[in-house]
Amino acid sequence: MTGRTTALGCAALLTAAVGLAAWLEPRSEAWRGRRAQADSFLLTLLGDGRRLFANHFFVKADVYLHSGFYPSIFDQARSACEHGLGQEQEPDPRAEGGQQAHDHRVHEGHENHAAEAHEHHDDHNFPGPPRDWIDRLSRHFRVTEHTHLAGAQTEAEILPWLRLAAEFDPHQVEFYTVAAYWLRSRLGKVDQAEAFLRRGLRVNPNSEEILFELGRLAWENRKDAARARNLWSAAEHAWHARFGAVDETNRVSLRRILAHRAQLEEETGNVDEAIRYWTRVRELSPHPEAIEQRLATLRQRLPAAH
């Protein structure tokens, strides 16, 4: 019986142990030669489970950001039924200027489904009034207060999960970009953010998202315009190499690259270039009028510059 109990305990802890191994393994950078071997071993061991874990950890980071206040998948499904799906939220045109507001989400863009559903709930007052006495009682034992992490001290708490997510699924670019966003713009750890993005780039060499994010880091945090230009050009190339033509699914990512580039040119005084880029943004924007206004003011500056 001792044997069985031990076996049970070990089985229960195996998950944790595998997770630990998955995430300690790349830390042993010194043993470069053995990495590939360990990687493939882990891959066969976990297979698609890895991706599942990675997504779970990513959601966990979001949960942490809300101090545990988070609807379950059941609540999300209920809300989806009650309020109807497919209410695509249009990106805020103001955000395109590069001054993105911190909107209390792990994902700074409006790109993620989980976040989408989650925002939904904020709007529709999750968790709603209690439906029965058990529900009412249970609220005392759950997180029912919607608070956010505040300050570098507590916001750092989401990072282990992002890191873990990236270890489990290194090809999910979002994990790197989101972590880098928090590291550089909220926690002031620019070097760490860059190192992490570079790591992501090594695994995903042609990711326009990571290149874009590196560009933002170079410009917003290091004020290195030349480097940012290079990186954003590379991002643009990568985008074209990957998608070729613009369609509804990839429009936003290209627009973002171009809008940031346009903003950079505008701020560094290259009005010609700024106009060129803003014109391209206008073609992709759902609110061309706003961009048009901007172009108009720029054109006014044009003769002055010459």
């Binding site: 630990l20 942490y64 750092a156 708490e157 990072l159 750890k189 760490q192 992490f196």
Partner: peptide, 20 residues
């Protein structure tokens, strides 16, 4: 053991993380 190993790991050179 698992807790101690996890606790001694350093994420992004930040030792303040405790919730995970």
């Amino acid at each position: 053991l698992i807790t101690l190993v996890l606790g001694s790991v350093n994420f992004f050179e930040d030792t303040l993380m405790v919730r995970y």
